[in-house]
Design a protein around this nucleic acid. Structure first.
Lengths: 193, 193
DNA sequence: TTTGCTATTTATAACTT
DNA sequence: TAAGTTATAAATAGCAA
């Protein structure tokens, strides 16, 4: 004796943008939660640090972070990191230049890990690829922020260099987050190049 | 007639850190890929913008971004945005900093592309990946030369920048202003220069 | 809109190569 | 040690309230 199905169950769907808006909204909510749950499990099971940021098509922001979004993305982007800021003593030119290059190389290293396929195929142009004369004041201020962060980074690296007499071990490894210090609490931020 | 099972199949596991290291490593790899796949599907199905950053317990970084990690997390963190665009017009210092950052980012981008090609297959360590304390005078001078070249580049760009009036529309795709965070909450800006 | 319910698809734990 | 297999666990599409 056959029981009538109460549901047709999950169906396979095409991997393309869902056209029906309400359907898309429901799927967005459910899958967003699912994504964050997966992220949480990965963090728990493997002891990983994970940050995830999602913007809905309408521009609403959602995030997951274990333990927190900001330090993870800062670390990934190479911003606001330092190893021994209080040891800063001077501004030896070569050291600062060296550390600046090290920053570039560090940034390079993290770029190599990016997986996204979509940028390969699209003609998308990143903001920093714009010509300077196309930038507006918003972007200039943006760049200024980046510059300040970079300056901080350089100063911090410089501190490490000087403190260890050109014998520091972890500028490129950056294997653990225990030395990361927020920019706002960094006493050497105002040091010049 | 019963067929002998070839596998016991997937088993339920306790949601806690996996103790066996090799098992944990396998799980990390598989679930990391699964997470990025979920993120990719969410982006495709719903037109969402998603950034995910994962650090393994060993400190290795992985990321997924659609379309790119950096603009998404910057937008989320409220960095690089402002409602007061008039403050720095014609500022020579700002212009020079701007061009320096552009150069840094350009160099970073170029390096990232190079890294992509070769890092998978070889365990070869490039000279700039060496620890600083392993570098000899030759390498240090090389770094110095690279810096000098960079400086020269910056100076050239600067001339072009100063000759222009900054006038443009947003290059950042910041079309959803409701998520922007006021500049005053940005530690970078509060640090001054 | 969010929540709950199946039936089905998808992810993946344990194993194998 | 990474990649493939299989059976079971988990996620979720389509409905319904």
């Amino acid at each position: 004796m056959e029981k009538k199905k109460q549901s047709i169950g999950r169906q396979k769907i095409k991997m393309a943008k869902i056209k029906n808006q309400s359907h898309r909204q429901v799927t967005f909510s459910k899958r967003r939660l699912g994504l964050f749950q997966k992220a949480s499990e990965l963090a728990t099971l493997c002891g990983a640090e994970i940050a995830a940021v999602v913007f809905s098509p309408g521009g609403k922001a959602f995030s997951f972070g274990h333990p927190d979004v900001e330090p993870i993305v800062d670390r990934f982007l190479g911003r606001f990191t330092t190893r021994n800021p209080s040891a800063f003593k001077g501004n030896d030119y070569l050291s600062s230049q060296l550390t600046l290059v090290l920053d570039l190389l560090e940034a390079e290293r993290r770029c190599g890990e990016v997986l996204d396929q979509s940028k390969k195929s699209s003609g998308h142009r990143r903001w920093w690829e714009a010509r300077v004369d196309e930038l507006g004041m918003d972007e200039l201020e943006l760049l200024q922020s980046a510059m300040e962060a970079l300056k901080c980074n350089v100063a911090n690296h410089q501190a490490a260099v000087l403190a260890k007499n050109m014998n520091f071990s972890s500028c490129l490894g950056m294997s653990h987050g225990e030395n990361l210090i927020p920019l706002s609490s960094n006493p050497v931020f105002n040091a010049g190049f």
